[in-house]
Design a protein around this nucleic acid. Structure first.
Lengths: 163, 163
DNA sequence: AACGAGATGTTATAATGTTTCAAATCTCGT
DNA sequence: ACGAGATTTGAAACATTATAACATCTCGTT
């Protein structure tokens, strides 16, 4: 169902955005959540960017749209999108990125290139399992998991800056 | 070398703070890093609190001390302490906590209780290994890893609020 | 004493996120 | 179609977290 992002490789990005929006409509319809124009526009902007966007980046683009939005508008849209599993917040960047597993129940992790700023979202059953074991050993009940690995992506490892 | 924190169980906390400071002096001496009064005081305050403290919490206590400190003072002390592996920043809380493995080279993870706000720092070789495998599979070079699990600690699971 | 490097002080400002209340819009049962 | 109630959005102010820029101090060395 979900568009499988390949941020490290070239791809038809406008198709990939379109697919993400289509998926989002399906997810929202099935959950009786209202994907209003603002919410859809925010999701679209997030997907159009290959890199995580901050709330104020989104706000700036909405302003260019002619939409005179205040911070709460964006944060509310982002809350909605997060709650419906359509975007993720990257805590270490204070920024948001499209979820590449929309509709799936998943614990994901992020590989964040400090050079080109691209972010790869992955599900890693091995990591999830290991984390669950640790939690269980401590009698801790996990609810939300944040896993963010900063480093260098293959493209930036040898070459210079990439986009 | 390091005091092994047991945040979920009672312990002699003032001894545990004292031990942390002693360890910090040793670590800094061996690295020729200067644990100045401000830096030591910030570290002490962080250790005295069982819960992660925000930079402005620290600032407020310094003000009570009679120290008329501005934000950069605290942030600089925190930068120093982080760089020398004496404190960790919890990205999902914008707060700082004492490192229970000072001097050791480690990838750690945090179990954060959303009820009592206590944080348990752990090293989990299984998780680290699984993460390295994932990184390698993606040809990604990891540098900094953030693993934060929010949920309920054993004490808060059944009972009410705890401290 | 003069110098230089690291550490701190000081002021201002940037960046991120929230509270509050009012107005508009949608939903649903009748 | 209509209106009550719920959801969503607008708008202004504010709170929190973090940094920039530059001056001053401290302390060991020359």
């Amino acid at each position: 169902m979900s568009a499988n992002a390949l941020p490290y490789r070239p791809h038809n990005h406008s198709a990939c955005v379109h697919q993400a929006l289509t998926d989002a409509r399906t997810v929202c319809a099935s959950r009786q959540a209202r994907l209003t124009p603002i919410r859809e526009r925010v999701l679209e902007l997030i997907w159009q960017s290959h890199k995580p966007l901050g709330a104020y980046d989104l706000l700036a683009v909405l302003a260019e749209d002619g939409h005179n939005a205040a911070p709460p508008t964006v944060y509310r849209a982002l809350d909605f999108l997060q709650q419906n599993g359509l975007v993720h917040r990257i805590a270490s960047l204070n920024a948001f990125t499209g979820c590449t597993h929309a509709g799936e129940n998943h614990t994901c992790l992020f590989l964040i290139c400090r050079c080109c700023r691209n972010v790869l979202e992955l599900t890693a059953p091995g990591v999830t399992r290991a984390l669950n074991e640790v939690s269980e050993a401590e009698a801790f009940t996990p609810e939300e998991t944040t896993i963010e690995v900063a480093g260098l992506c293959p493209g930036c490892k040898d070459g210079g800056d990439h986009d």
